[in-house]
């Protein structure tokens, strides 16, 4: 084997192909079965969120706090998009994915764990959100990704923006626990 082959991505779909005989796409198509598609065709595809065809009520816009009041290390509870949906705004020590504010450190998340819905706690010294029920943990700087645990969805991130010096919530990425749609 060449050095290049050794370090290549064996069996990894979406990675450069490897091995002696890559599958030819046309051969799959030729036999006409549904979905018989080559690895190359699968490369780069991503699962789209389960969007409903019918139109949806829009998210409300909710003021959370003046930007100037959100101090370093801030942790503020609020409800969004309705009074049954607890959420938390955090100002993290360093920039986060989808963070807002001058240094991109302000983020907000649904507090309901996407495993079975227990409210998560924020541990500031580790910058991690922890569910007390079965210990799913979420990274607020990485779009609520599941660090480890039994939740099979990231923690829904609340979309934030600053309007005239006030931080506002105006949407949610992901489905809030216990709902079939975010706006009931």
């Amino acid at each position: 084997m060449t050095e290049k082959e050794k370090s290549s991505n064996r069996g990894c779909v979406g990675c450069p192909s490897y091995g002696s005989f890559p599958v030819a796409r046309r051969d799959f198509l030729a036999i006409g079965g549904a979905g018989l598609v080559s690895l190359a065709a699968a490369r780069g595809s991503r699962i789209a969120p389960a969007e409903a065809a019918e139109s949806q009520p829009a998210f409300p816009v909710t003021d959370i706090a003046p930007l100037a009041d959100i101090a370093a290390g801030a942790e503020m509870n609020f409800y969004y998009p309705d009074a049954d949906s607890p959420a938390v705004l955090l100002r993290l020590p360093s920039a986060a994915q989808q963070g807002i504010g001058p240094d991109g450190t302000i983020v907000a998340f649904s507090l309901l764990c996407t495993h079975k819905g227990c409210p998560v706690n924020y541990r500031a010294d580790r910058t991690i959100l922890i569910c007390p029920c079965h210990w799913s943990t979420f990274d607020p700087s990485k779009k609520g990704s599941v660090v480890i645990g039994q939740a099979s969805e990231p923690l829904p991130q609340i979309r934030l923006r600053v309007m005239e010096g006030v931080v506002q919530a105006f949407g949610v990425d992901g489905l809030i626990y216990g709902r079939h749609t975010n706006i009931l």
Partner: peptide
């Protein structure tokens, strides 16, 4: 009753628990 949010430890269909499939007959 999905007109209201389910309580913790209730029954929920997370998006990860759903998919759309296509059978052999299309």
């Amino acid at each position: 009753d999905f007109r209201q949010a389910q309580p913790p430890l209730g029954t929920w269909i997370a998006p990860s628990m759903h998919n759309v499939i296509t059978e052999r007959d299309g």
